[in-house]
Amino acid sequence: MLGDIRLQQPDASAELAESNAALAELFREQRLPLQQFLLGMLRNRAEADDALQQVFLKLVENWATLRLDTAKSWLFTVAYHEAMAARRRRFRQESALAELWSRPVWQSQASPPDAAERREEIEIVRSSLDALPAAQREVVERRMFRNQTFQTIANELGCPLGTVLTRMRLALKTLGELLEE
């Protein structure tokens, strides 16, 4: 009897270790995408981090019943509901929502990395921008660096809004490919 227990213990321990490893891997893999997703919805770093913590707490609470193959989509669904709950807590008025929509998400970014990393990152991003056709680069720079709306860009360039959006779409595609490499 005692022998049976001793034999079973290593199995249980191994199972727990395996489970913890899977949980840790899921955390590492999904932390950044979830954080970005929450930031996209909340436009506020502190609230996004709070919501992210809630998401992972729920992950831990439900870990015993979760299926690994659908855990990622489960996490995003929970994140969506956490973000909506956070917004309900924060915004009670229509005007406040209007302010939310008017604020680009990148104004809520975290503190920058150290100087060397930052220089390297800037170099990579600028070389990617340089790889864009001039017309696309101009739209990206005006939108990101001068904070002009797409409509303003269209007005100033004297072209239809659809043209500006098409250029941005093509630029996003190229930048996504270059920066994900």
């Binding site: 950044l32 979830l34 970005q36 996209g40 989509s73 990148w106 930052r118 991003v125 996504g176």
Partner: peptide
């Protein structure tokens, strides 16, 4: 809430815009 492609697209858009803004 449940469209995984849209969820990932938002996450990607935030990541990309933050990298661009950093430069």
């Amino acid at each position: 809430a449940d469209d995984q492609a849209a969820q990932v697209a938002v996450s990607r858009a935030v990541g990309l815009s933050q990298r661009l803004a950093s430069a």
